[in-house]
């Protein structure tokens, strides 16, 4: 049965922008201090961020903090995200959340974790990557695979090469420069050497939908079970509490039943062609 969200999730908590870190030309990470502590988000959950006078948009947590301090990595793709990505430290925003079902970390102990990201899909995975680096997930091993359009479009490159180096990151880009040291091609080219024993693999995948589909199929071709693959779906989240129906995907409301789904749940829904 679907759990009912608290009514207070409809009222934004005000938040102060404590820091702004530019990640890419069109992407920043905002560190927010919430005026009232929320529930500590689970990695993979999202908040509805409100730019006063402009609008509200669903943004995943890229740092889960303790419920009073959180990070969001945001790309400028429209009016609301432009208002958010041009915030200065000290600016006031609204935040509702945390919403949705995050990554199922209870499946990870004793397993080989593959964290597979495409483009900005690395943002919702960042808390998992940090936990894996800290060794708090109980996995037998973990590896990070990241695909991006080009080296300049690779999110968190400094962290990947320093703090996350223990995850033996495999980086691929579609368009390389001659100074690029990683792979060239889709992120799937790195899977072959990463899987090891497929029976032990738990893969968490986030990126554009086509990328997740291709990765999931490649994993299954290599004998990883569909229920050992978790993906994060992006839909038009608006209310965050399964009332407005904008994010409905078949029988599911992505804002409450997702955004994270197992591949055996997601695949039949994604196979339905949009009209």
């Amino acid at each position: 049965m679907r759990s009912e969200p608290a009514v207070t999730t409809l009222v934004p908590t005000m938040a102060t922008v404590e820091a702004v870190r530019r990640e890419l030309d069109d992407t920043v990470t905002l560190s927010l201090a919430l005026s009232e502590p929320s529930l500590t988000p689970t990695p993979g959950q999202f908040a509805m961020l409100w730019a006063p006078g402009v609008g509200e948009v669903a943004i995943s947590y890229s740092g889960v903090g303790d419920g009073s301090r959180v990070d969001h990595t945001i790309r400028d793709v429209g009016a609301t995200t432009r208002a958010l990505t041009t915030c200065e430290p000290g600016a006031e925003l609204g935040s509702r959340g945390p919403f949705g079902r995050g990554w199922d970390l209870s499946r990870l102990p004793g397993r080989r974790l593959l964290i597979i990201a495409g483009g900005l899909g690395l943002a919702p995975l960042r808390p998992v990557v940090e936990a894996a680096t800290a060794g708090t997930l109980g996995t037998s091993s973990a590896q990070l695979l990241v695909g991006a359009r080009s080296p300049d479009a690779m999110l968190y490159r400094d962290e990947i090469s320093t703090h996350w180096a223990s995850l033996e990151p495999q980086l691929t880009v579609d368009h390389a420069t001659d100074t690029w040291k990683g792979g060239v091609g889709p992120v799937t080219i790195a899977l072959g050497s990463a899987i090891g024993d497929p029976a032990t693999v738990e893969a968490i995948v986030c990126g554009p939908e086509i990328m997740m589909r291709v990765v999931a199929r490649e994993l299954m071709d290599r004998d990883v079970a569909p229920d050992a693959i978790q993906v994060s779906l992006e839909r038009n989240m608006q209310c965050g509490v399964a009332r407005c129906g904008h994010c409905q995907l078949g029988p599911l409301f992505t804002c409450v039943d997702g955004p994270v789904l197992r591949w055996d749940e997601a695949e039949p829904l994604l196979a339905v062609r949009e009209r």
Partner: peptide, 12 residues
């Protein structure tokens, strides 16, 4: 897949 420009989508 490279031609699809997979990572250049509108995901915010």
């Amino acid at each position: 897949l490279q031609l699809l420009d997979l990572y250049g989508g509108s995901r915010a």
